[in-house]
Each structure stands twice: as C-alpha cells, then as structure tokens.
Design a protein around this nucleic acid. Structure first.
Length: 636
DNA sequence: AGATTTACTA
C-alpha cells in the first residue's frame, strides 16, 4: 500500500444533465430553497438514495462554496460509501482540509466494510500522524479490519486512551482475537466485560463455533436469554461446518419450534448440513420452505441448493435449480460441474466446463477440482493431463495439492503408478498424508507392493502415517497372502497409537437422519435391524457370496472376522433401509469414509436380490447399485 | 448538527 495510490484522488464527479438531474436541480433552486442552506442540503443528503442525487448535491456544495463544510462532506462521503462508490468517497475525503475525527472514523469504517483493511489501517496511521486522537468509535471501526498483530497494538492504545470500558470496543477486541485464532485472549476480554450485549455474546459464540469448540459454544448459546436470528445462525452453521450436520439439523428444528424466523443465511447453513448428511427429504422441505416464505432464491442460495441436491443424490433437481439461475456465476457452474463429477457423469461435467468457458467465465481452481475429478472417475487420463496443463499454461492457476491428488487418483486408476509417483516427487508443494494415501491406494489396487512399501515406509518413518496408511498396506499384504506382514503392520499400528477413524453410515427415513457405527446397538429398532441383517446374510450365502475376511485388520479368527464384516455401518444402514422403506423404492445411504470393498460387493448383490436401487455416497463419490452392478465400475 | 459491534454458498 503506497500513499501514491491512496492519495491520488480520482477526478471529481462531473454531474451530467439528464431528466432526474433536471428535476432535482429545479427542486433545489426553487424560490424558497435558494440559496440552499447547509441545513437543507443535509436533509437532502439524508434523503438521497441514488448516485445522481449525490452528485447533484456535491455539485451544489462546490457551487455555493460549501465544499469545505465538515458535516456536509461527512454526510456526502458516507452516502457515497453506502452506494458502493468508495472512489468518490475517498476523493472527497482527500480534498477536505483537516478532516476531523468524525470524518476519519467514517472513511476508515467505509474501507473496513469494503474489506480494504490495508487502506483502513493506512488512513488510521495517517490520522495519528496528523495529530487527530482516535476515540471509541474509531477503534470499533478499525478493529474490524486488522490482524491479530495489529489488534494487539491497538488493544494497548485502547487501554492507554481509556476506551477499554466501552462495550463496542470490547466487542471489537473479542472479535479481533477470535479472528486471529487467539481464543484464549478473546475469552479473557469477553469474561472481563461487566456487561454483555447480544452482539458481544454472539461474537464470542462465533469465536467458539469457528474454532470447532462446539461444546463451549453450545453452553454459551443455551445460556443466552435473548436469541436473535444471528446467534441461531452462528450455532447452526458451527455444527454444519464442523462435521456435526445432524446437530445442525436438529437445532434448526428447535429454531423453528422457538418461532425464530430463519433467513437466507440460516438456509445456507442448513442446506450444507443436508448435503453432508444426504438428507434429501429435509433438503426438499427446506427448498419449499424457501419458496413459501418469500426468501429470494439468489445465486448463492441456488448454488447451495445445487450442492445439496447433488450431494443428496438428486442430480435432476440440482440441474433444475441450475437452469433457473439467470445470473450464474463461476461458483454456481463449479457446483454443478462437481455434482456431475460426483455422480460419475464425467462427460456431462466436461461438457458443462466447455459451456462455461464459452459463456466467457474464467474457471477457478475449484473448477479444475471438478473436471479433474470427472476425468478420474471415468479414467480419462489424457484428458486429465490436458486439463492439468491448461490450468497452469492457459489459465495461470498454480495447481494445489488437491489437484495433484486428482491427478494421482487418475493416473493410479490407469495403472500409471510410476508417472503418479514422479508427479508427486516433482511437485512444488509439500505432499500431505491424503496425497500419499491416494498413491498408496493406487498401489494397492494394482498390487504394486514394491512402491507401496516404499511409500508406507517413508510415511511411517516421517510420522506421517495415519490409520489409512496402515490399513492400505495391510490390505496389500493380505491380498498377497503374506500374513506375517499383516500381523507386523497391525502391531505397528497399535504401537503408533494411530486409531482408525470410525466408519459411520447414515440413512434418512421420514425426515430424520439415522446414524450407525459398526456394531452399533443404539438404534431403537436394533432387534429388527439385526434380524434383517441375518436375513441378508442368508440371501448372500445362498448366492454363493464369500465375505472378504482378508480385509479385516484385527487379530481374530475367521468366523469373528466374518462377524465383524457383517456389522459394518454400511450394512446396518442398509438393513434399516430395507425394513423401514417401501419395497421397490430406492435406498440412499451416506458413508463418511470410502465404502469398504466387502460392503461394496455385498451391496451389489443385495440390489439384485431385492430388485432395489441402492445409492451410496462415500467420501469420494456416488455409487449407484442397480441389479447387481455399480456405476463406479468397481473402481473407487 | 455528525458515528461504532455479530452470521455468508464450491
């Protein structure tokens, strides 16, 4: 940020003569209003709601020698800013001699509101340099747009100048520490506040929610006597953004029960939760709630709907929403492209990408996640390479680790392991465990023990191994029948203290999401579920199905291994789906990890036996099981 | 005569 940029004022507006200008001028210069007094101009300024009016008044100020009038300039500047014309605002500020604290505060606030924090800070320091003392209003404005480091410096100035007992300033400080990730300091300032407003409570609530401290957040939330839509939103979104989507949904229902009125932001958060859960019924209900309650479906809301529908398995509905957006932005295109990719409709995803480019929109890094993912699901290696190269060469987007991940998946699927390994070795960014996991997964798929061992060893020795590393490696040895190595890996995993992330599957029935962990006995219908499970096993055996006991990582007998497979979360959810939905209707299941290969094989067969379509979303993509086969073509 | 704080979609 240089002063040259900031203080080179754009040319002052030259009012143009048009209809509205003429009538306005006529009003301003009618006999009783002429010459305009500052009072009258102030009233006009407060009433003005268009940039034309503001320019007219500005012209009047200049014509009548009022262009150094502090209050009028202040008001004019504020109106320019609120019309989004920060350039006029700043020009006016720079042409006003010796701006006072009101003017300084207001121009700082305007920059802060427009996200121009560097500029806001620069003006603030300029103000200090000019010898103008900040007050509590200035602090609450400047605190919005500063880093933790600057926040600390401002905090000491706040104390020095004695504004630390001001409610607004305190709230601003809590917010600064919260945004800077210093939850402890935020809490300290917060707890020292003698009086806490709804806003300051919400600020602290946001702090907890943003940093994943949902228990603390909920405690604070439950203690709030007065709740407005904002604090409901913070709490619901906190759950949605931290892997607790069901809690978000449950809280949303309580919000409705408490007669609080959701707004667009509430809906965005809850749609995200529905998407994560695959809760299509709830998502549809929300969509109709939006339509029935006068909430405008703008491009953001529409995008959230697309995301929800595609994650809930209804690409058709996603497309309907997409087609209705008249001002599609790149985010909307991205989510539709990703939707197609997620479902394995790779060619549609790529076609949509081309269409988007034809419309003149510039793809972003997220767009490439979509098309590279699409290539991966369809095994389009050359196409993938051309996207990957175009990304850098044509669109000047530096590939991120996620893009390398897509490429590794793609090359891995095509069996081009060495190529994938070379890519990883030569990339400029540091590989992360997810990327290594993708490569390791490819090694397992093609039985390339040599490379797999090399990678796993590297990961273990660098303390980068996660549960997936051990499991993949163990599966590789198991596939080769090397049971000693399987046992060794198991011990290694135990010693490392790494625990497997528990698999969790969920299914939505009657607007409620039912979650299952492996071997879960918590569901009220547990008995019926397990009876169904037995029946399913009977069907599978009758069709000559052999459980894939070799993928079980525990040191137990074969029979117990079979039993441990039988109660996998996917199968529990499936069993519950079979007993609680109408015959012939599709069953939709969501799993938090990748679907296990035994469950995948079993589900294929069950789709055939029961003549039901089973849609399963795992961490990576959708699997549509129909009549004994899966849309992923057994690669995932 | 004049002002400041909370929530946000891949």
């Amino acid at each position: 940020m240089s002063s040259a940029i900031l203080f080179t004022a754009p040319p002052l507006p030259t009012p143009s003569i048009n209809r509205s200008t003429l009538s306005f001028t006529a009003a301003a210069s009618s006999a009783s209003n002429f010459p305009p007094t500052p009072d009258k101009l102030a009233i006009l300024l407060d009433k003005s709601n268009s940039i034309h009016h503001l320019l007219q008044i500005h012209a009047a100020l200049l014509r009548h020698g009022l262009h150094q009038h502090h209050i009028l300039n202040f008001k004019l500047q504020r109106s320019y800013s609120s019309q989004g014309r920060l350039d006029y605002s700043l020009a006016l500020f720079n042409r006003t001699r010796n701006p006072n604290i009101f003017f300084y505060t207001s121009i700082i606030n305007a920059h802060a509101l427009h996200g121009l924090s560097q500029e806001a800070l620069f003006i603030y320091t300029q103000m200090l340099y000019e010898g103008v003392q900040p007050n509590e209003f200035t602090f609450s404005s400047i605190l919005k747009s500063c880093s933790l480091e600057h926040g600390k410096m401002l905090h000491s100035q706040v104390i020095k100048l004695g504004f630390d007992s001001d409610l607004y300033v305190q709230t601003g400080l809590v917010d600064v520490y919260a945004r800077g990730g210093d939850v402890g300091s935020a809490r300290l300032v917060f707890e020292r506040m003698p009086e806490k407003s709804l806003v300051s409570l919400t600020t602290m609530l946001t702090c907890y929610a943003k940093h994943g401290e949902l228990k603390e957040a909920r405690l604070l939330f439950d203690g709030m006597v007065k709740k407005d839509v904002v604090c409901w939103n913070v709490m619901i979104d906190g759950y949605a953004q931290h892997g607790m989507p069901n809690e978000a949904l449950v809280l949303f229902r309580r919000m409705l029960a408490a007669k609080a009125r959701p707004n667009e932001i509430t809906i965005l958060a809850v749609l995200s939760a529905c998407g994560q859960l695959g809760a299509l019924e709830s998502g549809r209900w929300l969509h109709s709630y939006v339509d029935n309650n006068g909430i405008r479906v703008n491009v953001r809301l529409a995008t959230a709907l697309i995301d929800m529908y595609s994650k809930c398995g209804s690409l058709e509905d996603a497309r309907l929403v997409f087609d209705k957006i008249y001002d599609k932005d790149v985010v909307a295109w991205n989510s539709m492209i990703i939707g197609y990719a997620l479902h394995g409709f790779s060619h549609d995803a790529i076609e949509l990408f081309n269409e988007m480019c034809r419309m003149g929109l510039r793809p972003t890094d997220i767009t490439f996640i979509g098309v590279l993912g699409a290539c991966g699901h369809a095994g389009l290696v050359e196409k993938g390479w051309s996207f990957f190269n175009a990304m850098r060469d044509e669109y000047e987007i530096e590939p991120k680790i996620e893009h390398y991940g897509c490429m590794v998946n793609l090359l891995g699927r095509g069996g081009r392991l060495e190529e994938a390994y070379e890519l990883v070795k030569n990339m400029k960014v540091e590989p992360d465990p997810i990327l290594w996991g993708a490569l390791l997964g490819a090694c397992r798929l093609h039985g390339n023990l040599e490379l797999g061992e090399k990678i796993a060893e590297y990961l273990v020795s660098h303390n980068l191994a996660n549960s997936g590393t051990y499991i993949l490696l163990s599966n590789m040895y198991a596939a080769k029948g090397n049971w000693e190595e399987v046992a060794r890996i198991r011990t290694l995993m135990k010693d490392s203290g790494v625990r497997k992330e528990p698999g969790c599957s969920s299914i939505e029935v009657n607007n409620r999401v039912h979650e299952f962990l492996a071997g879960d006995l918590k569901h009220p219908k547990t008995e019926e579920i397990y009876r169904m499970l037995e029946e399913m096993n009977g069907w599978l055996k009758a069709h000559g199905y052999t459980p894939q006991t070799e993928i079980v990582l525990h040191d137990i007998g074969d029979e117990q291994k079979e039993q441990s497979l039988e109660v996998h979360s996917e199968k529990l959810a499936l069993a519950y789906g079979l007993i609680s939905t109408q015959p012939g209707t599709p069953i939709k299941i969501v799993k938090n990890l990748r679907v296990c290969s035994d469950c995948h094989a079993a589900t294929k067969l069950i789709s055939k036996i029961t003549s039901r379509k089973i849609v399963m979303r795992d961490r990576n993509r959708f699997h549509h099981f129909v009549n004994g086969s899966c849309s992923c073509g057994d690669y995932w």
